[in-house]
Structure formats: structure tokens, C-alpha cells
Simulated assay, not measured.
Amino acid sequence: MAGARESLLDAAGAALARRPWSAVRMVEVAAAAGVSRQTLYNEFGGKDGLARALVRRAADGYLAGVERALAGGGGDWERLTAVAEWTAAAAQQDALVRALLTGCWSERLPAPPRGPAPV
């Protein structure tokens, strides 16, 4: 199911790039991912679960980039510079990363996560 999960997250991200989250429909996401709507609901439980997973994936991708920047060669200054450059680029490219970093959530995005995420 990992393939279906990633396909669904990709489809949800593509839909979010085209329209506000409130206008994204589960049936569209499932069709774009090439899976049934039931598969989507089995994987995420509903639109809120899909939103949480989409935000989590954006956060995980950002943090992986930070880890890569910190693991790069050079001294502390070079690694700090690499993290700053990565942060600026990631925030520019991804509205979810930008919202996570700034706390500025718009109506176009899924609602920010509340409380601890389910494990």
C-alpha cells in the first residue's frame, strides 16, 4: 500500500496546487492516483487524515533536507549557511513548508495539525 499512499499524496498535492484545500475532492484525488475512493478512505480515514499526511510529508521532506545540509562538508558556518539556503528554497517551493515555518496558514491550505499526530 506504500505505492498507493504515495500516489494519493502526490495527487492531493497536485490538486492543492491548483485549488484551495476546501475545493479538493476525495473522489478527484482517488481518480488521479488511479485507486478507488475506498482505498483512499482505508489509507487516510478521510479528508482530515489526508491533510495531516500531506502536511507530515512536507515536514518530513523539509527536515530531510536540513539533515542533508547539516551532513555536508565544511565547518559550522558552511553547514549553517547550507541549512539557511535550503530553508529559503524549500519555503519558496512549497506552500505547506512555508506555512509550517511561519505559522501563516491561508484558507487555500489544509488546516494546520492540532495536537500530537497519531503514530
Rank of each mutant, 00 (worst) to 15 (best):
residue 2 A to M: 09
residue 3 G to N: 14
residue 4 A to M: 04
residue 6 E to T: 13
residue 8 L to M: 14
residue 9 L to C: 12
residue 9 L to V: 11
residue 10 D to W: 04
residue 11 A to G: 04
residue 11 A to I: 07
residue 11 A to S: 13
residue 12 A to W: 05
residue 12 A to E: 06
residue 13 G to K: 05
residue 16 L to C: 13
residue 16 L to D: 07
residue 18 R to P: 05
residue 18 R to T: 09
residue 19 R to W: 10
residue 20 P to C: 03
residue 21 W to M: 00
residue 22 S to D: 10
residue 22 S to C: 13
residue 22 S to L: 11
residue 22 S to K: 10
residue 23 A to Q: 13
residue 23 A to F: 09
residue 25 R to S: 00
residue 25 R to M: 04
residue 25 R to P: 00
residue 27 V to R: 13
residue 28 E to A: 12
residue 28 E to Q: 10
residue 28 E to D: 15
residue 32 A to G: 03
residue 32 A to M: 06
residue 33 A to C: 08
residue 33 A to Y: 04
residue 33 A to F: 05
residue 33 A to S: 08
residue 36 S to G: 10
residue 38 Q to D: 10
residue 38 Q to S: 09
residue 38 Q to N: 08
residue 38 Q to L: 06
residue 40 L to E: 02
residue 41 Y to K: 08
residue 41 Y to H: 12
residue 43 E to D: 06
residue 44 F to N: 01
residue 47 K to L: 11
residue 48 D to R: 15
residue 48 D to V: 13
residue 49 G to A: 10
residue 49 G to M: 07
residue 49 G to C: 06
residue 50 L to Y: 00
residue 50 L to H: 02
residue 51 A to Y: 02
residue 54 L to T: 07
residue 54 L to S: 08
residue 55 V to I: 15
residue 55 V to H: 06
residue 56 R to P: 01
residue 56 R to E: 13
residue 56 R to C: 07
residue 57 R to K: 08
residue 57 R to N: 03
residue 58 A to N: 08
residue 58 A to W: 04
residue 61 G to V: 09
residue 62 Y to V: 02
residue 62 Y to R: 03
residue 62 Y to T: 02
residue 65 G to W: 08
residue 66 V to P: 02
residue 66 V to N: 00
residue 72 G to F: 05
residue 72 G to K: 08
residue 73 G to C: 12
residue 74 G to V: 12
residue 75 G to K: 09
residue 78 E to C: 08
residue 78 E to A: 14
residue 80 L to S: 15
residue 80 L to R: 15
residue 80 L to T: 15
residue 81 T to P: 00
residue 81 T to V: 11
residue 82 A to L: 05
residue 86 W to P: 09
residue 86 W to G: 05
residue 86 W to H: 15
residue 87 T to V: 06
residue 89 A to N: 15
residue 89 A to M: 15
residue 91 A to G: 14
residue 92 Q to V: 14
residue 92 Q to G: 14
residue 93 Q to Y: 05
residue 94 D to K: 13
residue 94 D to C: 13
residue 95 A to S: 14
residue 95 A to L: 11
residue 96 L to H: 11
residue 97 V to S: 05
residue 97 V to H: 04
residue 97 V to Q: 01
residue 99 A to G: 02
residue 100 L to K: 00
residue 102 T to M: 03
residue 102 T to C: 02
residue 104 C to T: 08
residue 106 S to Y: 02
residue 106 S to N: 08
residue 107 E to M: 05
residue 108 R to A: 12
residue 108 R to W: 09
residue 108 R to C: 02
residue 108 R to K: 07
residue 109 L to H: 06
residue 110 P to R: 01
residue 110 P to H: 00
residue 111 A to K: 06
residue 111 A to P: 07
residue 111 A to F: 01
residue 112 P to W: 01
residue 113 P to F: 09
residue 113 P to Y: 06
residue 114 R to W: 12
residue 114 R to M: 12
residue 114 R to P: 03
residue 114 R to S: 13
residue 117 A to P: 04
residue 118 P to C: 11
